[in-house]
């Protein structure tokens, strides 16, 4: 029984990772056709970095993810604090709305935002992308921070004030350090979601601001492009680093 369940786990992991391994191996394949091994080569990485538009899209995406993650972390953290600390009218509605944003199909969010931006006459580009990305990252940051706050002892802020800390000092010396791991984890999650997003970006981006996922999308729709293997490998390594960082932060804080 134990043997069976172990092999089953192994089999599913194998299926999950085969495509990723294939992708990595093929990124070093010299062959142009992409199906046969033509020897080790870094030519696709080279051609990737020589592609000016591609590099530009990469920078655009990084900048977008960086700003979207930061803005959503700030707003999300404040929201989580408000939900945690204050009693106010419509708290349940607010909670519900965040949950709905998180659960609703991305495409629904995408078209609704497209409608809004066109109605307002907002030029599709960096700003529209930023607003959209912050919106879909927000609930994830909120739940990450809320999870941390729910384990938070209500008496800690009081203890700090009892010992002579002003409200501001208390926030700086107790509240923020305690929720810091959640803030960082939320930021990393937001960053990754933003870097990965195709659905929403397809609708709300314009020609003035090309981002990486859309560039990849246009490349992979037809045929096989060996550069994508190289790019995918780079993105994979990048996400792995981010994920390990986030896990490390969370596990260190749990001790």
């Amino acid at each position: 029984m134990r043997w069976l369940s172990r092999s089953y786990l192994a089999l599913v992991y194998l299926l999950l990772y085969v495509p990723i391994v294939v992708l990595i191996v093929f990124s070093f394949n010299d062959s142009r056709t992409g199906y046969n091994w033509g020897g080790f080569s870094l030519r696709w990485y080279e051609s990737l970095f020589n592609n000016h538009a591609m590099v530009q899209a990469m920078w655009n995406s990084l900048w977008l993810a960086l700003t979207a993650a930061t803005v959503s972390t700030c707003i999300g953290a404040l929201t989580a604090l408000a939900l945690h600390r204050y009693r106010f009218r419509g708290k349940k509605v607010l909670n519900g709305m965040l949950f709905v944003v998180m659960m609703s199909p991305e495409i629904v969010l995408a078209i609704s935002l497209l409608g809004l931006f066109l109605l307002l006459g907002l030029k599709l580009g960096y700003v529209s992308l930023l607003l959209a990305h912050v919106t879909f990252c927000l609930p994830f940051v909120v739940i990450t921070v809320m999870a941390r706050l729910s384990g938070f002892d209500e008496r800690l802020p009081e203890a700090a004030r009892d010992l002579g800390a002003s409200d501001f000092t208390m926030t700086r010396t107790v509240l923020i350090p305690v929720i810091m791991p959640a803030l960082m984890a939320g930021w990393l999650l937001g960053f990754t979601l933003s870097m990965d997003d195709v659905v929403v970006s397809t609708f709300v981006s314009g020609p003035s601001y090309e981002i990486l996922p859309l560039r990849i999308y246009s490349m992979v729709r037809v045929g096989l492009k060996p550069e994508v293997n190289a790019l995918g490998t780079l993105l994979l390594v990048f996400s792995l680093v981010m994920l390990m960082l986030s896990q490390w932060i969370l596990s260190r804080s749990k001790q």
Partner: peptide, 20 residues
């Protein structure tokens, strides 16, 4: 007077030690 300005101190029920 807010708590930080009172010359009294509290020992909390579950201690409320700063975990960090």
């Amino acid at each position: 007077t807010p708590p930080e300005n009172r010359p009294l101190n509290t020992v909390f029920q579950n201690y409320a030690l700063f975990p960090h």
